[in-house]
Design a binder for these strands. Structure first.
Lengths: 207, 207
DNA sequence: CCTACATGAGACATCATAGTCTCATTTAAG
DNA sequence: CTTAAATGAGACTATGATGTCTCATGTAGG
């Protein structure tokens, strides 16, 4: 959408700045949603004025950030093949992707705006398929989604040396988190512990 | 602690104001933790100056609020007889009390300070007993607590006409929420669905 | 090398909120 | 009733954040 016009002068410099500001904003705002723009500027290594040049207002920055996150969510959902892969595998994979991209850490921001109807639909579809497959019993997509997101945050905030995590003695720490989340969600949504036995094996998610 | 000195002049008027301010602060800050003091004053029906008279600073108000909430948590735990009642009954009862006092709605505030070590110990004891009784399998009190609190919020925020709630067709809406929470938490923490069958009967909690 | 764009630094205006103070009025309690 | 405390209303200051502007400097790209 930018390589069209010849008179269009968008210096590579500028694009880099914008990217760094967005990145910094994600980090800073995840810890304090009310952080002043100056702290974001510092974290990005640019002057406060530059932030204002790239984003006309604080709201504009928030909006851009939301759009940016939404884009990554959509990509994560696409990579997961929510609609076609076996639902349990899809759940495992989606969780994996979210942890990899550190997305959970980021949308601690009150960016409900980042969760667009499309993302929502993708997640809802996943849980619908999980239920059809008999993995869970809850039939309410809204409830499933909320439980999933809430537990995602909890698992993410869990300290690395928590007994719950170490007890899983998975290959890596992230793997342990993924397994914990998937198992907990399924249990919360009415899954049987038979499924649980299957879930703790990350090899299931492999291709 | 106030009926001691004779020269101690604490007009009943003043105490009422303080109470109303704290109440208003709970409501207002639950919705917006960064709400200005003026909004709290308005909600309390007093002038902004009065808030400043009773609480030297915003921080002081927050601290008082935390202490107030902590007090009520302790009372709730005591009424629940966490240490002696059958653990499943205690869980049901505790949840009931929390919903009754609308405590869950309130500590949406970032008042981690309101959760003192004493409250923490009470909750931890409850989950320890639940595990000993075989109701749940998770042995990590921290994890249990976090899951419980996270799901508490989700259940509380759930809209009244949510299919998940209505499907429980409990006596009252609050009852449905309690049952949903207890069942979900137990499932999340590794409980079997056999227990679930018992849980949906609120009569269990009756004295 | 040259030109136009991007930036950093900093001054500046504006606005929202916190916190203090005064004074007239209300009200609890002896 | 009388007194002293509590309040409401409002002026006032201080502070921090946002947003705008200018100008000198740096730098990408031709």
């Amino acid at each position: 959408m930018s390589s069209g016009g010849p008179s269009r002068r968008v210096r590579a410099d500028a694009e880099r700045s914008t990217a760094r500001i967005l990145e910094a904003a994600e980090d800073v705002l995840a810890e304090d949603p009310n952080a002043p723009l100056e702290r974001i500027a510092d974290a990005a290594g640019v002057a406060r004025a530059t932030v204002h040049r790239r984003f006309s207002s604080r709201t504009a920055l928030l909006d851009a950030l939301a759009a940016h996150l939404n884009e990554r969510y959509l990509r994560a959902l696409a990579e997961t093949r929510v609609a076609t892969a076996p639902p349990l595998v899809a759940l495992q994979r989606l969780t994996e992707t979210i942890f990899d991209l550190k997305l959970c850490h980021r949308f601690a921001i009150q960016l409900d705006a980042a969760i667009t109807p499309e993302v929502l639909a993708g997640v809802d579809l996943l849980f619908e398929r999980l239920r059809d497959a008999g993995v869970i019993t809850s039939a309410d997509p809204v409830w499933c989604r909320r439980v999933y997101l809430a537990l995602l945050h909890e698992v993410n905030d869990l300290s690395a040396d928590s007994p719950t995590l170490t007890a899983l003695h998975a290959g890596s720490e992230v793997e342990a988190r993924i397994n914990l989340l998937v198992g907990t969600v399924i249990g919360a949504l009415g899954g049987t512990d038979t499924t649980n036995g299957l879930l703790v094996r990350p090899s299931l998610a492999g291709d």
